[in-house]
């Protein structure tokens, strides 16, 4: 199948330069709770895995 320049130009541009700017959100409500939950979960799991590995649970 041959592709002409016309075909290429007909395609919508998809490069990051043409994408709308991503706006950073300010966490509020549920999202704020989710983020704090994530922090807590990660710290707890890291501690538990360290305890597990030092006790040789594998």
């Amino acid at each position: 199948m041959t592709i002409s320049r016309k075909d290429i130009k007909a395609m919508p541009p998809k490069e990051p330069e043409t994408l709308p700017e991503l706006v950073k959100i300010v966490p509020k409500g549920t999202i704020r709770v989710v983020f704090w939950g994530l922090r807590l979960y990660i710290v707890m799991m890291i501690v538990l895995v360290i305890i597990g590995f030092t006790r040789g649970i594998h």
């Binding site: 592709i3 075909d7 290429i8 395609m11 998809k14 490069e15």
Partner: peptide, 18 residues
């Protein structure tokens, strides 16, 4: 980088035709 965009545009044009 523009060349990269053109390569991708070619691929997309092929898909559109199909």
């Amino acid at each position: 980088v523009l060349d990269d965009a053109e390569v991708r545009a070619e691929d997309q044009a092929r898909i559109t035709r199909l």
